[in-house]
Amino acid sequence: MLSTRSQTIIIWWGLAFILIYGLSLGFLLKMVPLPSAHLSAAAVAAFYTANAFQVRLGAVICSYSSAFMVPLSVVIYVQMARLEKGVPIWSILQLAGGCMMSIFLVLPPLFWGVAAFTPSRPPEITLIMHELANLTLTTTDQYYIFQMVAIAVVSLTQKSDPHSAFPRWMGYFTIWAAIMFEAGAIAFLFKSGPFAWNGLFVFWSPFSIFGAWFFALGFTVLRALKHQAGLQPA
């Protein structure tokens, strides 16, 4: 029997961590939204000088919590694998994509933390670390796409299973979220407007859709786990 209890705990763990990550991104690192890409090197260095402690504290907390994609991906793997026949190839792809994505969630706080570590250095050096952090955050969607395509495929091709964690609408929702994520990489081309790294279509829309997708997935899996737990002998 699958350990539904452990899976439930792991999902809550992931949900709690994404919440902590998001809150420290906004309140400690002050990166929601990212500052304008037109800021001069001096202005960027001044930001890190003025906020050195809280950016570093934010980096600490984000580094702890940034692995929130790992527990979620593992439980999703288990839940997807029970719907696949033979080698659960889509489940494995999902797990690989989700775990790799974790790397791109820890890198931006790491880079911001480095920028704030010695803000007295020449401003241009701080600027490059700041830019690296912001572009890493906004332009790295490739692994999500693998994770999302895999989830969409299994959601839409599963044989009907009353205890499936993936309702068909979740498959369509995931396709939509994957399409909306594609705009992120465009941030390399613009410094202002809706496609800049702090713009509507590169920052606000992918981040809110990602948040909504993550929680929707977490809660559909939790609901399914509750059903599955009812099946097990006490």
Binding site: R168, F173, I179, M180, S205
Partner: peptide
């Protein structure tokens, strides 16, 4: 099917945002 309309309406919402912008 019902689920498909999540994708359709979601997409229309985003494109409406495009047009407003």
């Amino acid at each position: 099917e019902e689920g498909l309309w999540v994708l359709i309406l979601g997409d229309m919402m985003v494109f409406s945002l495009f047009f407003l912008t």
